[in-house]
Design a protein around this nucleic acid. Sequence first.
DNA 1: CCCATTGTCATGCGATCGCATCGTATAAGC
DNA 2: GCTTATACGATGCGATCGCATGACAATGGG
Lengths: 212, 212
Amino acid sequence: MAKGEWPVPKLVDHDERRRAISAAVLRLAAGEGLESVSLRHVAAEAGISMGSVQHYFDSKDEMLLFALQQLAQQREQRITERLSVAPDPPTVRSLLRTCLMEVLPTDEQRRSEWLAGIAYFIRALSEPQLAAAMAEGVPKLIAFFADQLDTARRAGDLAAGVDARQEAVLLWSIVDSQATAVVLGQRTPDEAVATVDYYLDRLFRPPGSATS
Amino acid sequence: MAKGEWPVPKLVDHDERRRAISAAVLRLAAGEGLESVSLRHVAAEAGISMGSVQHYFDSKDEMLLFALQQLAQQREQRITERLSVAPDPPTVRSLLRTCLMEVLPTDEQRRSEWLAGIAYFIRALSEPQLAAAMAEGVPKLIAFFADQLDTARRAGDLAAGVDARQEAVLLWSIVDSQATAVVLGQRTPDEAVATVDYYLDRLFRPPGSATS
DNA sequence: CCCATTGTCATGCGATCGCATCGTATAAGC
DNA sequence: GCTTATACGATGCGATCGCATGACAATGGG
């Protein structure tokens, strides 16, 4: 063209390659921790050469950041999908339970996501960009919990003396810590589910039936 | 002596040296993560040569394990000290609150402990020895919580429909997750304390005063 | 005094790291 | 067909890693 720059015809999908590489990063991070995520290992895991990895990411840090963003996006997308499957929720409680169970590492997919997230944790302390990517989704989820709980509170479905905002924080705290305990092998998925259900029982117990 | 082995005269306290080195390990782990804990860095942090570090620990893994054990021992010792200071607790609630606040990262010392613990987390997944050292203290603490809660339940101090064991798990879950959120900067120590106090309020609310 | 033992440090080795550079193959525009 | 830009792999470099080895000082029993 008359312009000095070309539209760049490209024969491969650049973003798709980056996602494939970041998937390899997350697999390695979940399996062996971030320490063993080297350019060479990532290349081997993705089945390409190290040079290709460098071609799609300017640096290792950028690759790690992209992979973390992909992780957060996947999780958020899966939760919204689960919520859209049941657009007419019978109760607030079942809606919240769906979200909580979606996050708990009850299968290999979610376990892997938790492990990868934990692997990024320490590095996020010294790299603000990673911390921002990690902390992005949680406040939104907590705000959603608070909104739902407030709806239930107004409908009189909650126990007495319940603060929607604090309970939303507590709900996330419980699934967060229980998820950690499960991936560490300290608790079984069933125990974690039982603990979450126990707390939902106490949270949604109507004031009138406190003695039952 | 008649034996071929000597009583070993020793001019330095072997264990004291190991503790000093492990303290350097924990400082580095809390500040930069386990990835930057190398023999050279540990030696520099402890103010000795790398050869000395090797002299006191057969391998890096043994050094890391010893440091983690020291960390767990310190935490447990500090909790028991805090409990022994108040041998005549006015209420179960204040006793539990003391334990919970002792664990929360409200000062630099506890924040550093949490960071070091988190730094060990991922490695503990692939090294059973580390996992065993990490998971050692928590069940004891939860069992203590459950005992205390059961005492309070029999005394009628708890809200209706409360399960002591589940509540003990929940208490630990809350401080665990809140501590993590604090060290990540997602929440302030004051907010974490407020959340814990809120939950204690709900837990210890007497059945008769549910409407107040 | 002699010497075995320990504390401490310096150094070297092989491996791996992130990164830069190069060569080559391919596809699109002139 | 030639140029240009991209895709991809191979290789080298300096740094750092864990670990092994040897040198030297200090100590205390024979």
